[in-house]
Structure formats: C-alpha cells, structure tokens
Design a protein around this nucleic acid. Structure first.
Lengths: 340, 340
DNA sequence: CTGTTAGCGCATTCAG
DNA sequence: CTGAATGCGCTAACAG
C-alpha cells in the first residue's frame, strides 16, 4: 500500500494541512517543520496521487494553440487534431482554445502571444516562423511562467520548453538517401523545392539534404532550393520552369507544402524521373503515392504531436516529468506499400 | 460544469446509490427506475469521471505479460519496456507480472495461460506462436472474461481483443519495395531468411514480400524463405551457404531475428550486395546500418506496443473506448540517416 | 505558523 | 428494491 498524506502527517508529527503546504511549496511553514515533513516523505517514499489532487482542486488546464490558417492540408489536419483533443477536454481536464492566424505572418503570432494572460492560461502551443519578434514574444511569455511548446517547426533560440516535431535535419538526410539510392548511380540533378527558408523546419531539411547529397552521391547535382511560400500554384510553375530549363533533372524533393502543384507539374512528365520525394501524408500526396507519381513521402504524425504537446504542457504545469521516449515524434517513411 | 452523479440523482428523483447501481449495471433496480436514470444520464450528457471512480474504488489493474526468453535482442528490449511500465505501476494503478517462457514453446505458453485466475487478473498480453493450442488457451481465458491482447505477432483466429503490433504484410511489402528500388533494375535473386513460419508475423512478412517482388520486380527471383528458428548461428550458416551456392544473390531480406549471424556472414561480402534489409533496431542492427552493412531496418517501437497494450487492457477493463489512432503501431523505416 | 474541517466525484457498506 | 452515510487521497478555507 503506498503511503498517503495521512501517513506523512503521522510520521512527521504534524497535521494534514502542514503536509500539504510543504508538498505544494506554499509559504508559512517553519524551516524546521519543512525539514521534518520532507524527511518523512523520503523515508516513506511518498509520491503524490495526481488524480486525487486534481479531483480535490477541480483542476483544469486552459491551453491555447496558435496555428496558421490557409489552404495547407497538413496544417488543416493539425487543426483538426487539436479540435479532436478539445472534444476530449472534459475527460482530460483541459480547456483548449485554438487561435488561427494568417500564414507567414509573424506579427499576427506576436499579437496573439502578447494578448495571453498568464493568470488564466497554463500552457501555449504554436506553429511558429523562426523570426526574432516571435522568439521575443515566446520568451516574454515563458518568463511570466507560461510554458510554451513549438509544434512542427522549432524556435531554436527561444526559451520554449519543448519542441513537438520531427528532427528535420534527419528528415532531409533521409530524403537524400532515398533519392540517391533510388537513382542508383544515374547522374543528373535533383530539384529541391521549399516553402520558405524563414521556417526552421524547411531550412533544416534543406541543409540535411544537401549535406548527404554532396557527401554520398557526388553524381547528383543540386538545384535550388526554390522558395514557393507553400503555394501550390507557385510550386507548379517553379517545377515546370525548372523541368523545361534544361539541366537534366532526375529527381525532385519537395520539402515544403503545395504538393498539389507538384503533382500537376509532373502529370506531363510521367515516368521520366527516378525519384520524387515529398512531405506529409495528405489526400493529395496519398493519391500521388498510390499512382506512382511520388516514390516516398516523409511524414510527421500530427495527432501524436498534438497529444504530445498536451501531455508536455500538463506535466510541466504540475511539475511532473515525462516519458521522453513517448514524446519523440518519428519521421515516418511511407512508400506505396505501408500507407496506413 | 459537467454533471455529476448528484445531478443525475436529482434529475431522476432517486438516490446516489441507485444511480451508481444503474451506471455500473448492478442488479436490484426496478426496470422503471433504470429507465428514469438512463433518461437523466442522456438528458444531462453525463460522463463518468473515471479518475474519481478509480479513487473511490481503490482500483488496480493486475496485468500479466507472457514473453519468450532467450537471446533475442528485440524480445529483451520488449521485456525491458514491460519492466519499465511495471515501475510506473503505482502511478498508473497497474500491477504487472512478467512471465518468461522458453522460446518457440507453445506448451509453455498454454501452461501459463491456463494457470491464470480470472478472479485476480484483469488483463493479459502475450507474444504468441500461432498454434491451435495457444489459440485455444487464449479463447478459454477470454470466455472467462479476461481480456487478452497479442503483442508483436498476432493470433488471427483467436478471440484476443486486440493486436498490438505492426501490419506485417505491409512490412513485407515495404521491404520488397525498398529492395526492388535499391536494386534499380539489376537482375538477380533475393534471399529471404525467416525465423519460423509458425510465427504469424514471419509468415505474413514473407507473403507480403513475395507478392510485391513478383508483381513489381520481375527481374528479381526469390530464394527461400529459409527457416532459422531465429538462431544467429543458423542464420550465419544459411546465408553463407546460399551465397556460396551460386545463383547470383543481389539482395537479402531477413524478416526474422538473428541479425548477428547475418552481419557475420556479410563480413566477407562487403559491398557485393545491392540491398540488405532486416527487422528491429537493436544494438547489432544499429551498428550494421551505421557501417553500411544493412541498407534499411524496419522496426516496431516496442515501448509504444507495451504502453498501447496497457491502455487497451485498462480501457477494456472499465468499458471505455480508445483513440484508435494512438494505438496504431507504425512500421518504422530506418535508414542510416534517421536512426533515433 | 499550525491544525480542523469540509468537500472534489464516485463506490460501497449497511439499514430500511 | 432503495437510500443515507462513510471514505478514497488530496486541497482549501477557516480558525486558532
């Protein structure tokens, strides 16, 4: 039978209230008494029953998620997952508010961040552009005691307490390996398409990709990355232009969004490329994989990311530690054959 | 504010005890009264607070896990994950017992299964050989009301309530795709090495692999599967023999364990194969990937499998439903570049 | 500075 | 068949 606050109280020779004060680090207890209680705690190996505590406290965790809106299918999925989590709120003791901001608009993110009241919010999750003003706003919030986690794309220089997303350098490296192996020695160029180098996930993928391509597949040259702001139309035009331009392109890596545009551009090039790799399983990329237009799709499980973000934020809110293994977001590699 | 049992009692005009009886499906309540309570429940949208219920009930979930022992690194990892979960027992209200049985010994599994007392155990997880006697023992247990889940390898014909593991047909298909693409048209044969066709996971991988190889890569012939009982020494000898035998082997797929033996056999064949694919990230396979001896390793996250098994068993024990997305075990595809 | 007491939402005796 | 009362482990007024 694990010890309870009663056992601690008896062991330390004090009352329940005092034990509670010490346990929760509240003031108004003599140094001596604190020591007695702490001694009892460690002597009996006491661990607080968080569920009982939450019950007594009627605790809820008010959380805010900031996500860019727009046509990006992946971000729409992410939003849907947050919504799904919000629907489980009553059972998970959360209270989730979703703030949609215009895409590629650091100012909008900053506004939302600055408007958050540290008294009434116990955690924030956001998909951020890696710019100084956003970092500043995040740091301000963290200093006020509100834990912040980044989703999908990290804010490397910031005080965010956790990043819920994949290792994007490794993702870029993986893409390069797949493309290099699929090309199997055939020389030529690889076109790299990105959304924006202001997104740290895109920048990291690009650098990981370039590193492996150069080191391990010298027969392949690199064209790009061309930036498209994740707009499908721009992606289509960029790819068409590159394909028409001449220097033989044998593979394409789209490390950003706008897969729809890529698919359209490839319609006229059936089977001419050795490898096409893109990111995120969506309606479009799934179809492209099935049709053999894409050869591989790297993916991050946004449901997992959202659940992880919530766990991390809750754990931090009551000073618990977590299972790091459970919070690692995998780089899913999907071929036509292992699509879920 | 979500409704509580008090609200239901007031709404239905009965006492707390009666509400509780209806909620927990206990007998001794008039049909009329049951209806009144149920009406109130659905009218107010009541959902039971499981944590409060567990507190009041001092509930613990006694779980039994049955895992084969022996030198198999993957199974050792699995056991370690179960042990880790057992250490979290007090906070998760579980009480976990691990039963180690000799590998490839259906009889031993059956003995353990039959010795389980349905009164004192609320769930069972096992790594099973797909044989009739094991299926029978599982079904007996389920019929006595003890939920059983399979880990790693399923028991397709049984009454197990859930399978915590990857889609092994898809895994085999994925391996074939990778090997086919890595060979990039070079003709030759692929050697398939398996542990035992009595393990449904091995059988399924083999069939998925063969199907894709035949349909999509006609230039590649298939040799095997040779069975090794997951013994590293046998793997080594089998691979060496096949490699020496003549018919040009350009790739190897080890869909079972014993990677150590495969690595040893390949030491003399550096760089002669177009592709080597194996399963499960362990100390050995990780090194082989880093060294370029293996080109890809398919993996199942056994930590995830164990946590999932526990969630599923607990949820079943109190009639809750679960997030299916969270319980899907992914086929991890690891190249040298995305090893965690 | 410390102790007493009354719940949180639910389950479970024990009477009636 | 039904209800009142007690307690699970913990927190939070409110006294002292």
């Amino acid at each position: 039978m694990r010890p309870t606050v009663h056992d601690i109280a008896a062991e330390a020779g004090v009352s329940l209230a005092t034990v509670d004060r010490v346990l929760n680090g509240r003031p108004g207890v003599r140094r001596q008494t604190v020591d007695k209680v702490e001694a009892a705690v460690s002597r009996l190996g006491y661990v607080r029953d968080v569920t009982a505590a939450n019950l007594a406290r009627k605790r809820v965790y008010p959380l805010v998620f900031i996500v860019p809106g727009g046509p990006n299918s992946f971000l729409q999925n992410l939003t849907a997952e947050i919504t799904a989590a919000a629907q489980r709120s009553s059972i998970e003791r959360t209270s989730i508010r979703i703030e949609t901001v215009p895409p590629f608009d650091p100012g909008a993110i900053v506004s939302v961040l600055d408007a958050i009241d540290p008294k009434t919010v116990s955690g924030v999750g956001l998909v951020a552009t890696d710019t100084a003003d956003v970092t500043g706003a995040v740091d301000r919030l963290v200093e006020q005691g509100v834990p912040v986690v980044t989703l999908v794309s990290d804010l490397p220089g910031s005080q965010r307490i956790h990043y819920c997303g994949i290792d994007n350098i490794a993702a870029g490296r993986t893409a390069a390996s797949l493309i290099g192996r699929f090309c199997a020695g055939r020389p030529g160029n690889v076109l790299v398409v990105a959304g924006s180098m202001k997104l740290s996930d895109h920048a990291e993928r690009a650098s990981g990709f370039a590193a492996v391509l150069e080191a391990e597949f010298p027969e392949l040259g690199l064209i790009g990355p061309v930036e498209t702001n994740d707009d499908a139309g721009t992606v289509r035009r960029s790819v068409e232009a590159a394909l028409a331009a001449g220097p033989e392109i044998v593979a394409i890596y789209n490390l950003g969004a706008g897969n729809r545009g890529l698919i359209e551009a490839l319609a006229a090039h059936k089977g001419k490329l050795s490898a096409v790799v893109a990111h995120e399983v969506t309606q479009h990329s799934r179809q492209a994989l099935a049709d053999g237009v894409f050869d591989a799709v790297l993916n991050q499980d946004c449901g997992h990311e959202v659940r992880s973000a919530i766990r991390v934020l809750k754990a931090r809110a009551d000073g618990l530690d977590l299972l790091t293994a459970q919070e690692r977001i995998r780089i899913d590699v999907f071929l036509r054959d292992n699509l879920p």
